[in-house]
Design a protein around this nucleic acid. Structure first.
Length: 458
RNA sequence: GCGCAGGUGACGGAGUGGUCAAUCGUACUUGGCUGUAAACCAAGCGCCCUUUGGGCUACGGAGGUUCGAAUCCUCCCCUGCGCA
């Protein structure tokens, strides 16, 4: 059997990098642009596969780190692979597995590393002038970094004593909040749950504190066992506050890991049934992003991921730099991005796939998307609002429940709050990307974008 | 009627002479969340003033002791339990 993986471009936007297409996988096709719903632990939190089918999801993205720790990739393999294990199908009554992806665990090098215990997002809100970005190094960046108090400006990547991570047996949110104030210096900042060296990353399990080691080879092995249709090369996601010097160092390491990922995967996937995407890094720096795109592009990957950190304002610019270089005949996945504005920006600049935890996480926390912007359903004004969440939305939640009911579910901490909220938010985002796709096919992408954004962010 | 216990901010419940506008939890208000450590986190929460600062009113009610009281004393009101 050979991999039927194939990407076909149906239509391209004029004067931009955007396009609509179709990805064919061993378990069905994905019409792009598409939003991959995030199912980290082999489940999309609070949602059943049948709900995902109903809201139009086409592909699920799970996580290597989480499934390796629990229940273990070997078990998932025995269960018939990720899709079968989690009962992910594409339509009711069809038991055949549907398309899946797995992330490599590289993101956890960031989220459990420098970001651990800090309010550090991979998206920085700090506006950095384009002049700064073009410079390989300089004071502008340092100045912008200084604006944000108590966070890492440098990540010393050297290996240290393994016992320094200091993870007690499993951490609660409270423990972490308490720990927050104690972690001040850079040397302490690296002593988190993930430590990076040339060969790979040493993790502490967030479940029980046990130590684990990921390398590109190990990530490929685990992802091979998980058996998704599309997987990612093992990379290092950096902090948006890292220095140019560190971004370069991390990028170079990610490049070496990319080559090792390809090598390791080719040995595992002898029959070529699993597609491997290489990940472009380089932070917000133009020369690094371009260098990374060129390097990754020349390797025999099936597709590409655009990863790492961004400044909110410059995200689309960074994506554009990269996608101008990546070969247009292979799909591009903008890793971990998915706010409405970002989806338009990503598509316009040449991205075909997205994934993001925002729709589900934000839903669980009471923020719900509407065509008139995101609302916090627990705000007092919705307490007795008997109108639907979004009268224009066709999702199960909007068709059957009022804002007052949803407000009540959230205020009373009922599990149904998460379920109804997540169904709605995912429906909203998945179908927003479908509408974007349709607008490309219909030739009115820019009109649709302007209309949607004007109203959503009014 | 007698005995015992008790009345603290929206609620529960600490405090028992000064560092108390009053610990803590909940509720409430608002905000955050972008390859999931997350059904989570943060801030605020008597009133007023421009401040890391100041003023005012408060711990059932009224008096009193004291330099100083939510905390001690007296009387009154109310609640719960037990006995009549």
């Amino acid at each position: 059997m050979t991999n039927p993986f194939k990407f076909t471009i149906e239509k391209e936007l004029k004067n931009s990098l955007g396009r609509a297409g179709i990805i064919e996988t061993p378990h069905g096709e994905i019409k792009t642009p598409a939003f991959a719903v995030v199912g980290t632990k082999a489940d999309v939190k609070a949602i059943r596969p049948d709900d995902l089918i109903a809201l139009g999801a086409e592909v699920v993205l799970a996580n290597t780190y989480h499934l390796y720790l629990q229940p273990g990739d070997e078990l998932v393999k025995k269960a018939g692979g990720l899709a079968k294990f989690m009962n992910w199908r594409r339509s009711d009554g069809n038991t055949a597995p549907a398309p899946t992806m797995t992330d490599s665990g590289g993101f956890q090098a960031f989220s459990l590393g420098v970001a651990f215990g800090k309010k550090v997002s991979k998206i920085s809100q700090t506006a950095v002038s384009s002049r700064d970005i073009l410079l390989p190094s300089g004071t502008g960046r340092a100045a912008s970094a200084a604006r944000l108090p108590s966070r890492p400006s440098v990540l010393p990547p050297k290996a240290e004593e393994p016992g320094s991570l200091g993870l007690r047996k499993s951490l609660s949110q409270k423990d972490i909040a308490t720990t927050h104030g104690e972690l001040e210096t850079d040397s302490e900042l690296i002593a988190k749950l993930a430590k990076i060296d040339e060969d790979g990353v040493t993790f502490k399990s967030v479940i029980d504190g046990s130590e684990h080691r990921f390398t590109p080879e190990r990530s490929m092995e685990i992802q091979w066992n998980l058996g998704a249709d599309m997987i990612f090369a093992f990379d290092e996601c950096t902090s948006p506050y890292a220095t140019y010097e560190y971004q370069k160092e991390a990028m170079d390491r990610t490049h070496r890991w990319a080559a090792r990922s390809l090598e390791a995967h080719s040995k595992l996937d002898k029959e070529n049934i699993q597609s491997l995407f290489g990940v472009v890094q380089g932070g917000r720096f133009k020369d690094l992003r371009e260098e990374s795109a060129k390097f990754i592009a020349k390797l025999p990957f099936d597709g590409f991921g655009i990863g790492g950190s961004f400044d909110k304002e410059d995200m689309y610019t960074v994506v554009e730099w990269v996608n101008k270089i990546l070969p247009k005949e292979k799909p591009r996945h903008l890793l971990g991005i998915g706010e409405p504005r970002d989806l338009f920006g990503g598509v316009e600049n040449g991205c075909d796939l997205f994934d993001c935890v925002a729709p589900t996480r934000v839903a669980r926390n009471g923020s719900l998307y509407t065509n008139d912007g995101r609302i916090i359903i627990t705000n007092s004004q919705y307490r007795s609002d008997l109108s639907p969440l979004d009268p224009e939305c066709g999702c199960y939640t909007c068709k059957n429940y009022t804002r007052a009911y949803l407000a009540h579910m959230f205020r009373s901490h009922e599990i149904l709050a998460s379920i109804l909220g997540s169904i709605h938010n995912l429906y909203f985002i998945v179908n927003l990307v479908k509408k974007i796709r349709q607008s490309i096919l219909d030739g009115n992408f820019f009109e649709y974008k302007a209309e949607f954004l004007r109203r959503y962010y009014r």
